[in-house]
Design a protein around this nucleic acid. Structure first.
Lengths: 103, 103
DNA sequence: GCGTGGCGTCACCGCGTGGTGAAGCACCGG
DNA sequence: CCGGTGCTTCACCACGCGGTGACGCCACGC
């Protein structure tokens, strides 16, 4: 999990994940959408692969990449203990709104 | 939000957030817990401050840092569209377990 | 006033990383 | 067999960032 945050730190990689959310895509599709050269995209895909965020399927000379959301679930779990903190901030906000509304 | 992932990418900074989860703390306390020198901790705190993840309260020559969970909520929101993906993976797992149990 | 404690800032170093062009590789169509 | 396509890998460069020691600053106690 440790490095998942580091992997997600790059905006291009997050954009790749967004592009894969709908369905699996070949590399060329990603290169067309992003403003990066093809080797750069391949490099990012390698990082995403080694982080377990993405999986490949080889179809002849074409590689189809699909999302593998496991590590994202771990991030969600890491967030858990903090969740009550911003929930109570929102609650405080809500109470203040209720007060104003009560006037 | 964009840079929040980059800020969280560093393990020391995540550790600082963990240490601040219970209650606000002065810098010296953080330096004692982490294996970092004081300037390094100050540098991380600056980054966390500018990312809005942390706030300071000055008490004489002592600075008390407290957690400010707003950006974490934004990460949680970013995660939202992916949540159904690992949910359905877990569902598939569950169905398989049910099948086995059904035997 | 003077030392001391608590932190922030500065200058600096070393390393990791994102980006690129060029080369290499596998597969297909002719 | 040969050109082309789709993608990975390979140096290589430039920049940013984490870490550190030295310094500066402010508040307090004596």
């Amino acid at each position: 999990m440790a490095s998942t945050f580091a992997v997600l730190a790059d905006p291009s990689r997050r954009e790749i994940l967004d592009l894969l959310r709908e369905r699996e895509r070949p590399v060329g599709y990603l290169v067309d959408r992003l403003t990066l050269t093809q080797p750069t995209v391949s490099k990012h895909l390698r990082v995403l692969r080694e982080a377990g965020l993405v999986e490949v399927r080889t179809d002849a000379q074409r590689r189809w990449y699909r999302l593998s959301p496991g590590p994202l679930a771990e991030i969600d779990a890491w967030l858990a203990p903090y969740r009550r903190l911003w929930k109570q901030s929102l609650d405080a906000l809500e109470r203040r709104l209720d007060e104003i509304e009560g006037d």
